[in-house]
């Protein structure tokens, strides 16, 4: 059944893809809401580009399907793509044409984009001065910017960006990140894949983490980081503390690091933790929240997935 919720712009339903005997995408389910900047995180070879290629209809799934704007792309791919802009892995252009002419070609295929709009997007990505130069003279970073311009020129509602900061210098990366955030604020939905965790943390409100073709988790960055929060402490009796902590239902895990314990619990639980230990006659000599980043969370989630097989 197609999704009719106007707030869900992209819905991936049980998508699988196999190359020969290798399952590269396994029963992937994902939803991206209108206006979200969704980060699609995963190590190299996790299936990010395959997923984007499947969404765009460039490759056919083994099973499952994709809905965009409530349209089933098995039957309404063209209509859905008219409302979508995308950057695929590795910018592709006609090297013998200028940047502007390349945009003109893509614009014609997108249903027609006028010259004024082309100049606007070239200005937006900082290529106005080089617009008349042939693309073969562009650096990788310039091609990446041109790709971004090509994805934006027809004012799409949904942007699918596969590693959009590849090849950019630090200043360019920051500009692209800011641009993506701005796009999100203007109501556009952005689905951006990356293996750069810091980048995703700065750009995205929501993330999905994929590894070996399987979606490990998805949710808002805030919620996921909360899941990854921990308290670090030093106690008078480590063995006794481990026993007490094992009995607390709101502590999902404890790890021992030399003379310290790292307890999987949010900072708000610090008082409860202290009380539970004190009641058992164990006292804290040190207790502090451990800083958590998306990187920690990512490593934890992907590490668990590896350990789990």
């Amino acid at each position: 059944m197609p999704n009719n919720d106007p707030e869900v712009v992209l819905r991936i339903v049980k998508l699988s893809k196999r190359y020969g005997s290798r399952l590269v995408l396994d029963d992937l389910n994902l939803e991206v809401g209108r206006g979200q900047v969704f980060g699609f995180l995963g190590p190299n070879g996790a299936g990010k580009t395959t997923t984007i290629s499947l969404i765009l209809g460039l490759i056919a799934p083994r099973s499952g399907h994709v809905e965009m704007f409530g349209l089933d792309t098995r039957t309404h791919l063209s209509q859905a793509l008219r409302r979508t802009g995308a950057i695929l892995e590795g910018p592709s252009f006609y090297p013998h044409l200028s940047g502007r002419d390349n945009l003109g070609v893509w614009g014609a295929l997108s249903g027609g984009v006028d010259g004024k709009r082309l100049d606007e997007v070239l200005e937006l990505v900082g290529l106005r001065d080089r617009a008349r130069d042939k693309v073969r003279t562009y650096s990788l970073g310039m091609k990446q910017r041109l790709g971004l311009a090509a994805s934006l020129m027809h004012d799409p509602e949904l942007l699918l960006l596969d590693e959009p900061t590849n090849g950019l210098d630090p200043a360019g990366m920051r500009e692209v990140r800011e641009l993506i955030r701005r796009l999100g604020k203007t109501g556009k939905t952005v689905f951006v894949s990356s293996h750069l965790l810091g980048e995703v943390e700065q750009m995205c409100d929501y993330v999905g983490i994929i590894k070996e073709g399987r979606l490990l988790t998805q949710g808002s960055v805030t919620a996921l980081l909360r899941q990854g929060q921990a308290l670090e402490m030093v106690v008078t009796d480590i063995e006794g503390a481990l026993e007490v902590l094992a009995g607390l239902p709101w502590v999902p895990g404890v790890t021992r690091e030399d003379n310290r314990l790292v307890v999987q619990a949010p900072p708000e639980r610090a008082a409860d933790l202290s009380r539970a230990l004190a009641e058992a006659g164990i006292y804290l000599s040190e207790l502090r929240p451990r800083d958590s980043s998306l990187e920690d969370f990512f490593l934890e989630v992907t590490g668990k997935a590896s350990a789990g097989g």
């Binding site: 695929l88 592709s92 006609y94």
Partner: peptide, 12 residues
């Protein structure tokens, strides 16, 4: 050049 993929994500 990879432009065939670019052409096909524009709705034709």
């Amino acid at each position: 050049w990879g432009t065939v993929r670019q052409a096909l994500i524009r709705g034709q």
